[in-house]
Simulated assay, not measured.
Amino acid sequence: MSRVRRRQREGSSGAAVPSFTSGEICDKVVALEELELAVRSCVETLESSSSSSSLESKCSAAGKLRLLAKHRSDFRAVIGGCPGAISSLVGLLRSADPATQENAATALLNLSLEESNQARITAAGAIKPLVYALKTGTEAAKQNAACALLSLSMIEDNRATIGACGAIPPLVSLLLHGSSRGKKDSLTTLYKLCTTQQNKERAVTAGAVRPLVELVVDHGAGTTEKAMVVLNSLAGIPEGREAIVDEGGIPALVEAIEDGSVKGKEFAVAALLQLCSDCTANRHLLVREGAIPPSSRCPSAAPLAPSTR
């Protein structure tokens, strides 16, 4: 473990306040008293309206809070409980400076990993600004804003609010155009949000079904199973079932049963069951795709109907 270097700087209160780099946060157990001084110094910089508090210094302060909140639960709790820390970061989510916005989104993501901070971040009005960062930020800012919204969606009442604030379309955009990590973050967040009826409808309207079906057959992306889980959720509403069939979802899911992993096959069967249980036309499509061998077909029995046990 490397020896930690600590720089002292003078905060506006006149006290010597430690400043830390990423490596120092990882390598040293910092006393909570020192942490509190560092956090207060960062918050003072973020809240300052003086001309001497430049955008660069605010970006730096947000970056320090981001690093301080990265590794330790007790640090996150202290930062979340510091007056002004969360609200000042929320204010930076609409910054025109990409680096500042990214630092703020990432700091809030890190803080949201502490359960007690999720209600604090929500109360600070973070949902709309996080959606803004999800729409306008850098690739990393979009990914981290999506994950922060995922954390906030652990509070059940937030799920409808996040959807109503417009999070679904930019999540679908991230699913379409994001990196591999971005696609995974989008899928996980969409799944959590789509536990509500309205968000399922919003996802279908935003065009989520086509990229989901494409990911089901794209085995190299590492997102096949996650995509099937979200499709299974969307298959719970009539609009979702119609869109899945229209976008070629039945052949894609049948292929997953034939060639997918054990877990993937389970997800595919669950989705097909929803698509076909109440629709004769979809059952015929399923049979035509070869999911049921001819010897096992029974004219009087509905394919994929659950059996008694």
Score class of each variant (00 low, 15 high):
Arg66Leu: 05
Lys128Pro: 00
Lys135Asp: 02
Lys64Ala: 11
Ala243Met: 01
Asp259Val: 13
Glu289Ser: 05
Val230Ile: 00
Glu115Val: 00
Asp278Lys: 15
Leu275Glu: 07
Gly248Glu: 08
Leu215Trp: 11
Lys192Gln: 13
Thr280Gly: 08
Thr45Gly: 01
Leu113Thr: 02
Lys135Tyr: 12
Ile162Tyr: 09
Arg9Thr: 07
Glu36Val: 08
Gly91Thr: 09
Leu285Ile: 11
Ile292Lys: 03
Glu34Met: 12
Glu102Leu: 03
Ile237Lys: 13
Ala291Tyr: 04
Glu34Gln: 07
Leu176Gln: 07
Ser261Trp: 04
Glu47Leu: 12
Val30Cys: 03
Val78Phe: 15
Ala31Pro: 15
Phe267Lys: 00
Ser57Gln: 10
Glu44Lys: 07
Gln143Lys: 12
Arg241Cys: 10
Ala164Tyr: 09
Ala61Asp: 01
Leu108Arg: 07
Thr189Gln: 08
Ser307His: 15
Ala235His: 05
Ser73Gly: 14
Ile25Cys: 00
Thr223Trp: 03
Ala104Cys: 10
Ser53His: 06
Leu187Val: 08
Leu150Ala: 03
Val39Ser: 12
Val229Glu: 02
Ser180Leu: 13
Lys183Arg: 03
Ser151Lys: 03
Leu46Arg: 00
Thr100Cys: 02
Gly236Ser: 02
Lys200Trp: 01
Ile121Met: 08
Tyr132Thr: 13
Cys42Trp: 06
Ser151Arg: 08
Thr136Lys: 05
